[in-house]
Amino acid sequence: MVSYIWFFLIGIGIIYSFLTGNLNAVNDSILTNGTKALELVMSILPIIVLWTGIMKIAEESGLLKKFASVVEPFLSKLFPDIPKGNAALGFIASNIAANMLGLGSAATPFGLKAMSELQKINPKKDTASRPMITFLVLNTAGVTLVPTTVLALRIAHGSANPSEIIMPGIIATFCSSLGGLLLDYIIRKKGSKL
């Protein structure tokens, strides 16, 4: 998928500039690109490192687990198909908790474990089950309380108030999760035989 996008962007860019005689700009772009990428990495690096450091404290002190256990009761309502006491729910809670706190790298292993637990109770092994889809909708909506990379880039580019986008972001994610879950719920209710 990403290969296609990559091909599409480069292909369109170069062919279009050929056609419009704008090759100079693209030539410059190719040659100066590396520096831009390096600057981008350098500006997000400090905050990512700082934040993963802070979050490691949250992980080792059991705060992440505690947070997950707060989320869990709400989650069990969203996943009626998961039997009570199944390990999947705990992993899902940890995944959501880690995502919320901007700990993407810690979230992924939890998410993969949740998927393999869900696969154990999946009657058709090659087909996505309903709880799997609900989980992924929740996961891809990506509820994040602290968008570290965005903050880092805003700071690097001299924003007067880098964190002003946090609350609007939270509201947007919240609506997106809610909308996704609602549609998922409707599909589950309507097509329960699917």
């Binding site: 998928m1 990403v2 995502n99 992924t108 998410g111 993969l112 998927m115 393999s116 869900l118 696969q119 092994k125 090659d126 087909t127 996505a128 799997m132 889809i133 992924l136 996961n139 891809t140 909506a141 990506g142 994040t144 968008p147 990379t149 965005v150 805003r154 986008i165 946090i166 609007p168 972001g169 947007a172 994610t173 997106s176 998922d184 599909i187 699917l194």
Partner: peptide, 28 residues
Amino acid sequence: SVLQGCTDTTIYVLALYFSSIGIKKTRY
């Protein structure tokens, strides 16, 4: 800024999670 923070890369996450357990039919 709001756009970048408000959602995750849906297509990438779906591909990663489903392929990790060998799901072929991803339904809706």
